[in-house]
Design a protein around this nucleic acid. Sequence first.
DNA 1: GGCGCATGCGGACTAGAGTCCGGTCATGGC
DNA 2: GCCATGACCGGACTCTAGTCCGCATGCGCC
Lengths: 226, 226
Amino acid sequence: MATDVTGPESVSSTRSVGCTTPYRVDLPVLHVGVVRERADAARNRLRVLAAAERLFAERGVEGVTMDEVAATAGVGKGTLYRRFVDKGGLAVALLDERERDLQQRILTGPPPLGPGADPADRLAAFVADYLSFVDRQLDLVLLSETATPGARLRTGAHAFWRQHCRYLLREARAPQPDLRADLLLASLAADQVRHWLHDEHRNLDDLAVGLSAIALVLAQPHPRRT
Amino acid sequence: MATDVTGPESVSSTRSVGCTTPYRVDLPVLHVGVVRERADAARNRLRVLAAAERLFAERGVEGVTMDEVAATAGVGKGTLYRRFVDKGGLAVALLDERERDLQQRILTGPPPLGPGADPADRLAAFVADYLSFVDRQLDLVLLSETATPGARLRTGAHAFWRQHCRYLLREARAPQPDLRADLLLASLAADQVRHWLHDEHRNLDDLAVGLSAIALVLAQPHPRRT
DNA sequence: GGCGCATGCGGACTAGAGTCCGGTCATGGC
DNA sequence: GCCATGACCGGACTCTAGTCCGCATGCGCC
C-alpha cells in the first residue's frame, strides 16, 4: 500500500534536508542499526527492482504480471510481496528514485521552483514541473495511485508534495491552504493528467500554462466578488 | 466501463430537459423502436439491479462478489456482464437513478442550485450539493470511479456534471472554464472525498463551506495579483 | 567456531474478476 | 400460426493478484 522500501538507500529518505523550507516530512525511515537488512534480502530487493524496471520498460506496466517480475528476478512471489506490499508498492519504489531530483530542486534548487521566489510563483512553477514529471512517468504514477483505492493519498511522496503546497499557500496568505493544496494535487492525479493529455489530446505545455495560472489564482490572499 | 443501461427507463436519459440551461448532454440513449429490449432481458436487468442493491446494502459494496450478484439474481455471469460491462458499470447503473434527483434540481429546481441565481453562486451550490451526494453514495461512487483507471471521466453522469460546471464558469466569465471545471470535479472524486471525510475526519458541512468558497474563487472573472 | 532463533524465502494455493461459446428462445416476416 | 434469425443465456474456464506456511539460512551470542 505505501512505501516499504526498507534498506540502505532509504536512509537518504530523511527528507528534511537542511534548507530554507521550514518543514519536515515524516516518511517511513529505517533506523539503521536497530534493524539491519540481511544480505540476501538486499540482493533480492535490487534484483526485483532491476527486473521490474526492465520488464516495465519492455512491455509496459500493464503487460507485466507479478509472477513474471518474480520469475525474472529469480525470486519467489512471497519474497516479492514481503518487500513491496502490492504492485503499486513496486511502482512507488521505482518512482522513489526518480522523484528525488524534483524534490531536491524544490528544496535547494534555483527559483522560481526553489526557495527565494514569491510563494505564488513557486507554486505555479511546482505545478508545471510536477505535471511534467507525471507525464514522463505516467504509467508508473498511475499504477502507484490506483493500485488500491486511496493509494494516491498515502504514499510518502504525496505527503511531500502536499506539505510543500500547503507551505507555499500559507506563505502566500491564501485562505484554506490545506484544502487548496489537496485541490491542486487532486487535479494532478495521474488519471486526470492522462485524460487531458491522451484522451483530450491537450498539449502538455498549454496544460502547464493553464494549470499554473490557476495555481496563481488559488494562491491569492483574498477571494474577490465583483 | 461506461453506462450500458439500455432499456425502457433509459429513455428518460434524454437529459436535455426543456429548461433554461442551454446545453445538451449526449448520453447513451436507446432509440426506442429501433431496438426494443427483449422482455426476458428487461426482467433480468431488473432482477440484477434489485439483487445488487440488496446485497450491497447488506454487506457493503466490497463484500459482494459478482458471482453472488448473479446467483442472487438467478442469472448467469455472462448475462450480468453483457449488461453491466464490469462491476463499476453495475455501480453506475445503480447510481443513475439516484443522480436524477440532483440533476433535476440543477436543471429546473429553485436557486441558487437551479437556474436564476448568479452563476458563481450556482457553482458554489452545486459543489456543496454534489459533495453531499457523493458522501451519501460514497461506496457506489468510489466503485464506479475506480473500477477501471479513467472510469471516473467516462461515465455519462460525469459528462453532465462537467458540462454544467463549464457552462456556469463560462457564464461567470471565468478564464479557462473547461480546465477549472475539471479541477473542481477532480477534487470531488470519491477517493478524495473519502480521504477528507474518513481519513482526516473532516466535517462534511465545513468541507462543503470550504469547497464552495474555492468554487467562488475559481468563478472569478479575472485573476488578481497583489 | 558453533548454536539457536528470528528473519527471510518461495512456490503451492485461494479468490474473484472478467471471457467464451454452445445451446435456447423471443421476435418479426410471411 | 410457423419459421429463420440473431440476440440472449449461463456456467465452465482463464488469468492474475495476493496469501500462507513449512523450510532454509544469515546473524548475534556464547
